[in-house]
């Protein structure tokens, strides 16, 4: 048997954090791997590679999606945002600031995905109820914090963004 894994390479054009790039990828490359290895946006964390933990969450045309469940070729012509796009230089985004203020992270491995999901929520729904926050956080596993300080961080982030 001969596995010719590069047979189905193809060209994709993707905008990652505002920069458009074209490159060749194998058909089977996951979007998470392409982002980490080709775009060096290593803030895309891979916790399970089977769609459960949420740590690989990115914004795909503004929608939170799991980069481990998408193929790189599916991103052709689309716009992707990763955690690297959130801060402005060394000035943290309000959501990041709120997570720091309320100790919403410990090891930080789950955090990038959570922050991106939360940013989409707060854009769509600036004054979320706890129920809505739960719905978003329910898609993310965090093994360190037990979620309480994450919940408090999201509530504070909403307040901070409203005051802005």
């Amino acid at each position: 048997m001969n596995v010719q894994s590069d047979l189905d390479s193809r060209q994709v054009t993707v905008t990652v954090n505002g920069k458009q790039e074209s490159l060749e990828v194998e058909g089977r490359t996951t979007l998470a791997d392409m982002l980490r290895q080709e775009f060096h946006t290593q803030g895309v964390r891979v916790g399970c590679e089977h769609g459960v933990c949420g740590s690989c969450t990115i914004l795909f045309d503004g929608e939170p999606m799991r980069a481990c469940l998408l193929l790189a070729v599916q991103a052709d012509g689309h716009e992707i945002k990763t955690i690297e796009s959130m801060a402005d230089g060394n000035k943290l985004h309000e959501i990041q600031e709120a997570f720091s203020e309320k100790h919403g992270l410990q090891c930080g491995f789950c955090t990038a995905g959570i922050i991106l999901s939360v940013s989409e929520l707060l854009e769509r729904c600036p004054e979320p109820t706890d129920e809505q926050i739960y719905e978003i956080l329910g898609g993310h596993l965090c093994r360190c914090t037990g979620y309480q300080q994450i919940l408090q961080s999201v509530r504070l982030a909403a307040d901070m963004l409203l005051e802005k």
Partner: peptide
């Protein structure tokens, strides 16, 4: 005091270099 953690900015911006980030 419950001061903010000094390691957070690195973690919050995705800049910590985990083992799989080394090339």
């Amino acid at each position: 005091q419950s001061v903010k953690r000094v390691e957070d900015p690195v973690l919050l911006t995705g800049r910590a270099r985990h083992i799989d980030d080394l090339e």
